[in-house]
Amino acid sequence: MDSSPEQPTRLGAFLRDRRTRLDPAALGLGGRRRTRGLRREEVAQRAHISTTWYTWLEQGRGGAPSPRVLDSLADALLMTEAEREHLFLVGIGRPPKARVAQRESISWRLQRLLDAMPLIPATIATSTWDIIGWNRAARLALTDYEALAPDDRNILRRMFLDPSTRAAQADWEAVARFLVATFRAETARIGDDDHARQLVAELSARSVDFVRLWTEQNVQSSGEGAKTIRHARMGEMTFEFSSFAIDGRPDLKLMVYNPATERDIDKMRQLCAESDSIGLPVGAGDLPVTEQRPTT
């Protein structure tokens, strides 16, 4: 942490400002008030720390608080994720571990964004590679996620436990290693999570290949690159994929698969036309990959 005197002053000012913004009545705290917001002792009680220690923090005394104390203060002061991150930055000079939002759906605005790309497959994936959002193009070119049960939409589970998914990969080893490396990196960033632990335990118990790759300790970002699939109707289709972080949802990433050539765009148009004529999706099935080339 920066030991300059400015740092604790910024922390104290931020804590004091957020304390005075809270409505005591809304939190069930009665009594006549001469000043706005909560009292220091009320914040300390909600954060399970001593009033003296909290007072010192507002006054810029007593040294740097621990991450646990900052988390408690963020909860006590009903901070948003952006405010929590700022609290850590001014308090100890680094951001907190991201929290997983306990939601298995995406906002209607994100869905509208996906739907605005009729010829570009796009999905929303969690840090554990659960697909929780997709557009029509993804159903046509990749996998009909809508037809699958939620547990079956996990890419790691399908890659290691489903024989047909494995058989569809021209280079299963490269794809599996990529998925495990990104899984390790992203779950470490998120922090301790029950779902991630349970998934690791399940895959470890049922797949010796997962155990082998998991013990390699490789880490990688989703990044960008090229992906070629063997589609059941269109044959080979190549996409340039890019991964984007979603503000306010550190546990999610937007994966966009842009058709690489005019020929691939034509195949997407043909898929859409065929789907319109028969009213059914024509999925390739679990992203069979013949090439994966991350760019630098």
Rank of each mutant, 00 (worst) to 15 (best):
G60T: 10
R206C: 01
P281D: 02
L252V: 00
W108G: 12
G62S: 09
T165Q: 02
Q102G: 07
T238S: 06
T55Q: 04
L199E: 01
G248M: 07
A82Y: 03
T296C: 10
P96H: 06
R293Y: 11
P121S: 01
A141P: 12
A226M: 14
L140V: 00
L11W: 08
R269W: 06
E146V: 05
C272A: 11
H231F: 12
L203V: 05
F14T: 11
T123W: 09
R18S: 08
M237Y: 01
V175M: 11
D286C: 03
E146W: 09
E146R: 02
R32G: 05
R153T: 04
D209Y: 12
N135R: 01
R177I: 07
G235H: 01
A138R: 03
S107N: 02
R184I: 15
A226V: 15
F88L: 02
M79P: 04
R293M: 12
E41Q: 00
A205Y: 01
L29A: 03
S243I: 09
A116R: 07
S222I: 13
L280T: 09
R153F: 04
P67K: 03
R206I: 00
P5Q: 10
V69F: 09
A125C: 13
Y257P: 05
Q111N: 02
R84M: 02
R177H: 06
I120H: 04
L57D: 08
R61S: 14
V180N: 05
E6I: 15
P95T: 02
R16V: 05
G63W: 05
H86L: 15
F14Q: 08
L148K: 07
W129M: 07
A137V: 04
D264G: 04
W53K: 00
G225W: 00
P5E: 10
C272F: 06
Y54H: 08
T238A: 08
D75V: 15
A168C: 13
M117Q: 01
D151F: 07
T238D: 04
D151I: 09
A176S: 09
L119V: 00
E224I: 06
G248D: 10
R263T: 15
D17R: 15
S105A: 11
A181E: 00
R263N: 14
P259V: 05
R233N: 07
F210G: 09
G60D: 09
Q111W: 03
S243G: 06
V256H: 02
D192R: 08
L148Q: 11
A232R: 10
E42T: 08
D115W: 03
T9E: 15
P67E: 02
Q45M: 14
A26P: 12
D151V: 14
E42M: 01
R177Y: 00
Q270D: 12
